[in-house]
Design a protein around this nucleic acid. Structure first.
Lengths: 347, 347
DNA sequence: GTGAAAGCGCTAACAA
DNA sequence: TTGTTAGCGCTTTCAC
């Protein structure tokens, strides 16, 4: 590495020398530790300001905290993640914490593993795993080495905290809404599972199973039409195309997420069909984008801001010493807009 | 911090003991340094695998590299950033590097400063600043302490590399396209500047100035209608509403980005107008989303994948020792879709 | 080719 | 209340 004109960082020793005190004193001031007089504090603070000193994080990491929270996101294409991240950031920044993110790589357990390792290797004080695709065992292994909060999964563990949306409630709201409008042929677009066997902990599994359950409860088991693609716009496009080939075609589509719904709208438009005239569409997440007038998508609101805030608080608590695991579920609500309406001809 | 059942990490000493060699030997094997026999390498590697050892990044950071690239993004709401990030990740991961991201906070120089400090404090080996809102002086200060590449700005510096889209070309393509279609009353939605004085280095400034220049070149200076909001969906919505109040109203809108265009579409729809019948709309970025059938937005493609890849390569070069600054500009292309058409009544 | 030892900047015992 | 000192895990001279 070139070090030619890279300036040497100001260290704690520089500050101590400049203030004519010990490094311990400076360290204590930095950490707001007990046993520092007001005079000492003022003197040290002055030296810090004058020299523009900032603690060297790696050195801190060798002994204690890094004041860093690691956030693993599957990718950064979903605006819902942005809401979570913003709320988390606001919650932790007041406590001197900084969030860093890594991409897990959607539905690729190996890439996800490397990404979470990367966080651990960088000595974060806590980790937020957003919708991870790995196994519970892997999450527990992680939780054993660092305080962990998992967002968007339905498993229960004694080792990490869970923050989740009650996807069963959300999916039920959508399907009941569509049925109440008079729809019978309701299709669903879900995500193909990264691992085999539709793991019950994954939110897409819950949404799909709930769809099936509610359909069955209304004697519509024979109308179930499931397209398994991906929770992306492309996935929604393909899934809708698949569902539209069925004869008779569905009069409504419950898309597993807003991005999926967005892609589905494209396929429906391409097929020359009108929403909601020919076909109703509902999404999940209530992303800002789909609220806009020309989209106006019926969707499930799961309040990402609260989830992110709670996740931040739980992480701080865990870092502070809490060992008992907690589980926090938000109850979602349905927001009906113009993309859903009664079917043209009932039945 | 609770350390109850947190496992002690495997250290280089553990590996050395296990392989019955010195820590120096292990360190050399880790870094592929010269002066290790094949036998030694094999022995050490076996111990590493057996113990599941991973180097402690913070300890490494104290002496040498961290094999980490820090990426500062204004936010994670723009899918265009995802393209850049994916390409960057692919380019650097082959060299053992990992990317970590922080949010800069759009158009808030203070938050941005904290975020880039956070990266430096975490001893990243290099930094990619994506569309930063700060001053050139601040970027140069950063570049003095860590290898830096700046993406999406037009300033020239001897201290950092620049990767950018030629926004002058892109904006010209859009405005010329609209004029060629017969439009005269063409409005533009741009981003309000975080600092005063429309800094010439910012891409939104280039796009806006080029819009004004091309309009003037076609004797349409008196038709210039500029709405300064933000490069977001909300900004597009507000900007379009503002432009639509003008009498006579514009027959075309050049939105500064696809997200802006998306918001503008909502406002236009709300006003009961049709696209492109009543008004044409063009964006910038060619995001995947806006390519879809029901949006089908004319846009400028600036190839984020190449930009991300180049940024990664330049960072690796700088880390490798290159001190001379380079500048890499991609020439964008126009992708015309159904959102632009000739105006209903010419003139 | 290999290993002993110093030290990176910081925190936390412990001593004063 | 303040300072002295011993490491944290690693890389890097510099002997051997």
């Amino acid at each position: 590495m070139v070090t030619g004109d890279r300036r040497r960082r100001v260290t704690i020793t520089d500050v101590a020398d400049h203030a004519r005190v010990s490094t311990t004193a400076v360290s204590k001031v930095l950490r707001n530790a007990y046993g520092v007089s007001a005079a000492m504090r003022a003197k040290v603070q002055a030296a810090i300001d004058e020299l523009g000193y900032r603690p060297h994080n790696a050195a801190r990491a060798m002994r204690g905290r890094t004041f860093t929270i690691g956030v693993l996101l599957p990718h950064i294409r979903n605006p819902f993640f942005a809401e979570i991240l913003d709320a988390l950031t606001e919650e932790i920044s007041g406590h001197g914490y900084q969030a860093i993110m890594v991409q897990g790589g959607d539905a690729d357990p190996e890439a996800e593993r490397r990404a979470s390792d990367a966080l651990v290797d960088r000595q974060v004080d806590g980790v937020l795993m957003v919708a991870p695709a790995c196994t519970k065992a892997q999450l527990e292994a992680l939780a054993r080495s660092v305080p962990t909060v998992v967002l968007g999964r339905h498993d229960r563990s004694a080792l990490y905290d869970c923050v989740l949306d009650d996807d069963e409630v959300g999916a039920e709201l959508v399907v009941e809404h569509l049925i109440a409008l008079g729809h019978r042929r309701i299709g669903h677009i879900t995500q193909r599972d990264p691992l085999s066997g539709r793991p019950a902990a994954l939110l897409q599994t819950i949404r799909a199973r709930t769809y099936e359950r509610v359909m069955a409860e209304h004697d519509l088991a024979d109308q179930i039409a499931l397209a398994a693609t991906a929770y992306t716009e492309e996935g929604g496009y393909e899934g809708a195309r698949e569902l539209l080939t069925r004869a008779p075609r569905p009069t409504a589509i419950f898309a597993g997420s807003d991005q999926v719904a967005f892609g589905a709208l494209a396929a429906i438009h391409e097929a020359g069909l009108a929403v909601p005239g020919d076909i109703s569409v509902a999404g999940y997440d209530n992303a800002r984008m789909i609220r806009l007038a020309h989209i106006s998508l019926t969707s499930v609101d799961q309040n990402g801001a609260i989830m992110g805030k709670i996740a931040g608080r739980l992480l701080l608590e865990r870092i502070g010493g809490r060992a008992a695991a907690v589980r926090f579920a938000v109850i979602p609500t349905l927001v009906t807009r113009r993309s859903t309406a009664p079917p043209r001809s009932r039945g």
